[in-house]
């Protein structure tokens, strides 16, 4: 079977731009997650959202998990999950936009940052999906690939003329019945 489903230019590197972007996102996600997990107060203070440290820690855990997923052999599901996570982040930041929040400007910056990240995640997820998409409806039937020119039954034992080298024989010879005479070499 000749394989000609994709152009050669996209196939000359096993790691495409989207794969590399996924790795970058993965490391970023792990780093961001660790920061949120271990320094939530710094973040809530900067955003004027004190008291939300538990929520930030939860977001950090989510970031670490999706980051590890993005660094795995199949990053696509993790990157898609990040798109959902970005939406949750924006929802979590929204209460900080109230006028009485002295750090409202920081919240706006944070939301812009999350929106850019979301766009990168979305681009990466779509690019990964496109690059590594395989026709799922294709049924591969190899039941005619015996490798023999004749029926399997006819080929059974066809190489029984082959002599197993002495140093590859099974010991003890489990197919042979044991007799003390044979063992002592009398027979």
């Amino acid at each position: 079977m000749s394989y000609s489903g994709k152009t050669s230019s996209s196939m000359s590197q096993s790691l495409g731009t989207s794969d590399k972007l996924a790795r970058g996102i993965g490391w970023f996600s792990v780093g961001m997650g660790l920061f949120e997990l271990f320094a939530p107060r710094t973040l809530t203070h900067a955003l004027g959202m004190e008291g939300k440290e538990t929520l930030v820690r939860a977001c950090g855990m989510r970031q670490i998990i999706s980051g590890i997923g993005a660094l795995s052999d199949n990053p696509t599901p993790a990157i898609w999950s990040r798109v959902g996570g970005d939406a949750l982040d924006i929802a979590a930041l929204t209460p900080g936009l109230r006028d009485e929040n002295p750090q409202k400007h920081n919240v706006e910056l944070a939301m812009t940052f999350v929106a850019v990240t979301c766009a990168a995640d979305l681009y990466c997820a779509q690019a990964l999906h496109k690059r590594h998409k395989y026709p799922s409806s294709m049924v591969y039937d190899y039941s005619d690939r015996s490798g023999f020119y004749r029926l399997v039954a006819d080929m059974h034992g066809a190489a029984s003329d082959f002599e197993v080298p002495a140093n590859m024989r099974a010991y003890p010879p489990m197919w042979a019945e044991f007799t003390p005479e044979k063992e002592s070499g009398l027979l």
Binding site: M1, S2, Y3, K6, M11, S12, S14
Partner: peptide, 11 residues
Amino acid sequence: THTVGLDQGPE
């Protein structure tokens, strides 16, 4: 099951 050019090897 697959025969391709060397340039398509990485994928």
